[in-house]
Amino acid sequence: MNGAVNIVITGLGLALPGVETAGDLLGRPDPSAAPVDPAARLGKKGLRYKDRATQLALCAAADALREAALPEQDGPDVAVVVSSNLGNVDTVCRVIRTLDEETSRGLSPMDTPSLSSNVIASELAIRFGLRGPNLTVCSGETAGLDAVRWALTLLRAGRAGAVLVVGVEPDNDDVRALTGAPRLVDGGAALVLETGESAQRRGVRALAAPHHYVRTDDPAPALRAVAGEPGLTLRAETTDPGWGAMSGALGVVQCATAVGWFAGGHREPVHALAGGAGLVLTATP
């Protein structure tokens, strides 16, 4: 599945506490840094009634699209693939409490979009005018790397000229209680993927090349068998400096970390491992 078309990352956006650049991900970012402030990054316009996960996704996506030099408001063949397992859990919990306290008459129609789990991907499409396939992956801990896999699939199928991939999870009392984690990452990352040929034609820089996605009980040896020894192996515990559970953000933040690794001059490949999913990222010429 992997060799035929060369696909590269050409845009990266981060919405993580204490992180400015991909290189910061390789140090030890301060997990107690201030939470990401979407209004400060994007302006308040258009954020009202958007849930926290959607706001964080918009922050990361804006930077990734800008770096990839895609038009601000017009993407007829740009697809969106979002990974988030917990993004709308807070809305569902809040609306069920309102229903119990005030009956359906107390509900706000403004909550309707966020009750559907595809809200992040559809709001990204609306804000940035992205009219390609629009997909939300909620497959658990593997979801972030799965999202990259489906982006590769969409590009190889010719269903899109570029794909915006976003992995994001919010932090709030409801998701802490549900996951049992003391806190969650409250952020995420965004990537733009396209073919190497498209990047060259558009004159944008390739930051890394993802390939060899595997899904198996033990992806580490499977990756080594197909792609050789890595220079850096990223697991959940080596990706998170103390933000807390990363869930659907994990795999996409790992790809961002790989971009930082190559930006720092390393050439050896990175193996990203999230649950039963694995992905190889290599440096681009």
Binding site: S116, S117, N118, S122, P133, N134, L135, T136, V137, C138, S139, G140, D146, W150, T153, L154, R156, A157, R159, R215
Partner: peptide
Amino acid sequence: DTHTFANACSASLYALALGTD
């Protein structure tokens, strides 16, 4: 190799598209 796609009311045909791919 299982995947859950939350794609609202077109979700199963979206999944079918990816299956054919």
